[in-house]
């Protein structure tokens, strides 16, 4: 049956509308969970607050299990679900730059928009920075293109690279998530937040 849009059960024109509605909901939940505070995000890196890590990994585990069970019951055709293509080196460098941005700015792109929407000035500066970055990257693209396109691995999944079944990989991801939550909680106790 699913995915609904590629199978044309829902018209493609609805794509953006649904994305818009989901995006508003996502932003609302982020704000309600306190993610529009830059201390919350920076807390992951200093160890005093692991809520961000927990929320995103819980979301990943929920989504992963949901998709695998949907596929098992034949409710969704996983072959039609878009997988981002992997360009290994640019993904690594991009990840490092993005991580540095998280620590320095205290926002991830999503939460910065969220925080800007409720009027936080630091978030507005951060969003401005994002656009400067986009512009600089676009202008420099001809120089960066070769690197950007290097090491193309195609639309691979981790389970294919490791040569195990998707279900087995899912199980290991669940174990890894639980292990990380456990370590994170120890860290939270060890590095308590200093109040200002």
């Amino acid at each position: 049956m699913g995915p609904l849009i590629p199978q044309e059960i829902i018209g493609e024109g609805w794509n953006f509308f649904i994305a818009f509605a989901v995006g508003i909901g996502f932003g609302f939940v982020l704000e309600q969970a306190g993610f529009s505070s830059s201390r919350k995000l920076a807390g992951v890196f200093y160890g005093y607050d692991a809520v961000v890590l927990k929320v995103f990994f819980t979301a990943a585990v929920t989504g992963m299990l949901g998709l695998l069970y949907f596929s098992l019951f034949d409710w969704i055709d996983l072959n039609l679900v878009w997988v981002n293509p992997t360009f290994l080196w640019s993904a690594i460098v991009g990840g490092v730059i993005m991580g540095a941005g998280f620590i320095i700015g205290g926002f991830c792109p999503g939460t910065s928009v969220c925080a800007a929407a409720i009027g936080k000035i630091d978030a507005m500066v951060f969003v401005g920075g994002i656009f400067i970055g986009i512009f600089a990257f676009a202008e420099m693209f001809p120089i960066l293109k070769k690197f950007y396109m290097s090491n193309y691995l195609g639309q691979v999944k981790l389970s294919e690279v490791l040569g195990i079944s998707q279900g087995a990989l899912a199980f290991f991801v669940i174990l890894a998530a639980i292990g990380m939550f456990w370590v994170a909680e120890i860290a939270e106790k060890k590095f308590p937040k200093e109040e200002y």
Partner: peptide, 18 residues
């Protein structure tokens, strides 16, 4: 519950009805 669900999905064969 999540661990049990994960174990089940690890052992059932992938859907090959297509």
């Amino acid at each position: 519950i999540v661990i049990i669900l994960g174990m089940i999905i690890a052992f059932v064969p992938e859907n090959t009805t297509k």
